[in-house]
Structure formats: structure tokens, C-alpha cells
């Protein structure tokens, strides 16, 4: 039935051969393997870096927060490439070189390797700590850097529509969300029924609208645009809230401060 002997753990000739090979020959063999793997890893990593930087991962971004978030993503991508290529290259090399081609033999009884284990643990630990510090903590600090708003907008989620109230002027709308460019804006978000989530893809901001509490998030728009020019400029509900969830969105328009003031005045009047 099987192509292999069923007797467990039979040590066979090439294992014995492995053991009696002189130390020097074995070392140079190992060295050759490591050189090939190292070169392949280097090539794969460079190609990987080229690919992930050539590809445009991000949709239209129109805010300061979008820059921070996209930079964090790109940095993580650069860090991910060598890790992924290392694992794939080592496994791939083993799959190509270390196959049993019908010999029906056991491999060498290597149970551990101090250098490899210590190196692996050191690298994974350092990498984990690095990603915590940057882009993790550093990105969070950047997002929180300017906590004083120039403009406050109250957002109310309600199945299945959004209502925006401009705090100072009292202007209210259920239509397009108008925001001025280069202005620090704070959204105060609430819900009257179930949980919704206030998400503007082009701004890379998202915060749940939770009944009973007011949550906040801040943004500074840096590019002009409307939903018609880029559909990432929309407020989209991102937390399942029932049958109208997918359609619970409105457009967002980023306009100049002069245009914004004019709009506000017209709406208030």
C-alpha cells in the first residue's frame, strides 16, 4: 500500500553517512546552504520591497490623518516583506532540496540549534517592540497631537441616516457633510438607537456612534473634493445596524473656508 516502510523510526544509511561525514565537509555543506538561502532571501526581499512600494495600496486620502495612517501602513508593509520572504525562502529551499525522493530514509536527528533559536527569539522580540513603538505608539500620539478644535460638528446616527449639527451656528443637515479645508474639526458622535459607526474613508477616521455616550474623533481635511469626485469622500456607517446599513451614507464635501462660511450663512438664513 504505502511507498514507505511502516517500521517506525528506521535509521538508514544516509543518516549514518551524515554522522560519519567529517566535521569540515558538513560545515562547508551547511555554509553553502546558508549562502544560497541568504542570497535568495535578499533577492526576494528587494523584489518584495519594489513590489509593495510600486503598488498603490491606498484609496484617495484627503486629510492629515490619512497621511499618518497611510505612512503607518507603508512602514508595516516594508517591515513585513523581509519576514514573509525569510519564512517562504527557508521553507521553499527545504521543499526543493530536502525531499525524500523514494529513498525511504530519516533525516538527521537535529533536535534544536541554540544559535538559530536565540537569533529567532531575539529578532521576533525586537520586531514586536519596534512595531509597538513605531508606527504604533508614535502614530497614536500623532493622531492626538492637536486636541483643540476650530470647529465642532455634532453627528447623530439614527437608523438609517446621519444628521449633522454645526455646534456654533446651529445649522443642521441630513444631506452632504460640508467641511472647510485646513481646519481642525471635532466630531461629537452619538446614536439614538443601535450602534453605528461614523466612517469617512478618505479621511481614515472611524468612530462608533454608541447610544448613551458621546464619542469623539478629530480630523483636518487637506484636499478639496466632493463625493462626485471621489467616492471615498462619504460618511459610511461601518457597524452593522440592520437592514438599511449598507445604504446609511451621505457625501462629504471639502470646501475652502470662504465657501464654507458662505454655505453656513446661507443655510442659517
Amino acid at each position: 500500500m504505502s511507498r514507505y516502510s511502516s517500521k517506525a523510526g528506521r535509521p538508514l544509511h544516509d543518516v549514518v553517512a551524515f554522522r560519519i561525514v567529517s566535521g569540515g565537509e558538513q560545515e562547508s555543506n551547511t555554509r553553502n546552504r546558508l549562502v544560497v538561502v541568504g542570497v535568495a532571501w535578499l533577492i526576494a526581499t528587494v523584489l518584495g520591497w519594489w513590489a509593495v512600494t510600486a503598488y498603490d495600496w491606498h484609496p484617495f486620502g484627503a486629510s492629515r490623518e490619512a497621511r499618518i495612517t497611510d505612512e503607518a501602513f507603508d512602514l508595516l508593509m516594508l517591515m513585513a516583506v523581509p519576514i514573509a520572504t525569510f519564512v517562504l525562502v527557508v521553507i521553499g529551499y527545504s521543499l526543493l532540496r530536502d525531499r525524500d525522493r523514494g529513498q525511504d530514509v530519516d533525516g538527521p536527528p537535529i533536535r534544536t540549534n541554540r544559535t538559530f533559536v536565540v537569533g529567532w527569539l531575539a529578532v521576533t522580540t525586537i520586531l514586536s517592540i519596534v512595531v509597538i513603538i513605531t508606527p504604533g505608539f508614535s502614530g497614536l500620539d500623532e493622531l492626538r497631537a492637536y486636541p483643540e478644535p476650530d470647529l465642532v460638528i455634532d453627528v447623530k446616527g439614527e437608523r438609517w441616516s446621519w444628521e449633522y449639527t454645526y455646534a456654533e451656528s446651529g445649522v443642521q443637515t441630513r444631506g452632504t457633510l460640508m467641511v472647510p479645508i485646513d481646519t481642525r474639526i471635532m466630531f461629537r458622535i452619538s446614536s439614538t438607537d443601535v450602534i453605528h459607526s461614523f466612517w469617512i474613508p478618505a479621511f481614515r477616521i472611524k468612530m462608533d456612534a454608541v447610544p448613551g455616550i458621546i464619542t469623539t474623533t478629530m480630523v483636518t481635511a487637506e484636499k478639496l473634493g466632493t463625493f462626485e469626485s471621489a467616492d471615498e469622500l462619504r460618511v459610511q456607517c461601518a457597524e452593522l445596524c440592520g437592514v438599511g446599513h449598507a445604504r446609511m451614507w451621505t457625501g462629504v464635501s471639502v470646501v475652502t473656508e470662504a465657501e464654507f462660511d458662505a454655505w453656513l450663512e446661507a443655510s442659517a438664513g
Binding site: 514507505y4 519564512v87 527557508v90 521553507i91 527545504s94 521543499l95 530536502d98 525531499r99 525524500d100 529513498q103 530514509v105 530519516d106 533525516g107 538527521p108 537535529i110 534544536t112 540549534n113 538559530f116 533559536v117 529567532w120 527569539l121
Partner: peptide, 14 residues
């Protein structure tokens, strides 16, 4: 770590 180290120098049967 364990998976990669086991495959290395093995007599792999696919």
C-alpha cells in the same frame, strides 16, 4: 520556528 527548523535538512515527503 519549530516548523521551519523541522523542515530544514529533512527528508520531506509531500
Amino acid at each position: 520556528l519549530s516548523a521551519v527548523g523541522t523542515l530544514w535538512l529533512g527528508k520531506i515527503r509531500l
